[in-house]
């Protein structure tokens, strides 16, 4: 099993509570969206889950294992993939090198990782065209695809994406989200998507949590939430 369970997570940042006793759960095979205005604690949730931040309290479970104390790079090895905010591709490495770095935890299986690179090229054909180019020369959309492909190289059981649509033109966002849908539907990948474009994310995800000031404000099925006025309020305040 590879359910992700976050229980009572509190993260403080220079005295301020970025997360305040936050609990969420993503079951195997689910597509869950994590929504909320900027500063609500979405990115912090992902960073704490992948071990980049030390929580002040709370636990993170992956499957049956309590991974709260596990160092970050080992969390990747057990199947937590993370596409960070702002893509963070390595600009001086070539596209292919970026992908190979993604499979660092599987470096002992050479033929398998070589195959994975090919699989990524099948999934994102535009990356194949640019495989020898420095990743810094990619356009925003291509860079985002590379970031996702790189995270997939570790064969994660769950993929966490942090605002993949940021800075992309609407058409590219649509294309990107189609890929995510395919990954979820065809490969059965569990996905936790952090997104500001709430309406869009709700059309993709099965369930969603809406955060406000570091805690879950609303949770429910996407179908129910998509027309819920409280969602717009979480972003723009109550229209009076």
């Amino acid at each position: 099993m590879s359910d992700l369970r976050i229980e009572g997570l509190t993260v403080t940042y220079g005295g301020a509570k970025a997360l305040d006793n936050l609990s969420i759960e993503v079951k195997t095979g689910e597509f869950v969206a994590l929504l909320g205005a900027n500063g609500a604690g979405k990115t912090t949730t992902l960073r704490a889950t992948s071990g980049l931040m030390r929580p002040a309290a709370g636990k993170v479970f992956f499957g049956d294992q309590d991974i709260s104390k596990l160092p970050g790079h080992k969390r990747t090895a057990i199947g937590i993939g993370h596409v960070p905010e702002g893509r963070q591709i390595f600009p001086d490495h070539s596209v292919e090198e970026n992908l190979q770095l993604g499979s660092f935890v599987r470096r002992k299986h050479r033929t398998e990782t070589a195959q994975s690179v090919e699989d990524m090229y099948d999934l994102f054909p535009r990356l194949k065209e640019r495989q020898k180019q420095a990743a810094g020369t990619l356009s925003g959309g291509e860079a985002q695809m590379l970031a996702i492909a790189r995270a997939l190289m570790s064969r994660p059981k769950i993929l966490m994406l942090d605002e993949p649509s940021l800075g992309l033109a609407p058409q590219l966002v649509l294309e990107l989200f189609k890929y995510l849908k395919r990954l979820h539907a065809e490969q059965g990948l569990t996905i936790l998507l952090v997104e500001q474009q709430a309406r869009l994310a709700l059309q993709l995800a099965q369930r969603a949590y809406i955060l406000e000031r570091g805690a879950v404000k609303i949770e429910g099925n996407s179908k129910d939430l998509i027309n819920d006025p409280r969602v717009a309020e979480a972003y723009l305040g109550k229209a009076s």
Binding site: L174, F177, Q196, A198, R199, L200, A201, Q203, Y235
Partner: peptide, 10 residues
């Protein structure tokens, strides 16, 4: 909140 018009494509 993003566009609502993508429902068909997605």
């Amino acid at each position: 909140l993003g566009n609502t018009d993508f429902s068909k494509e997605l």
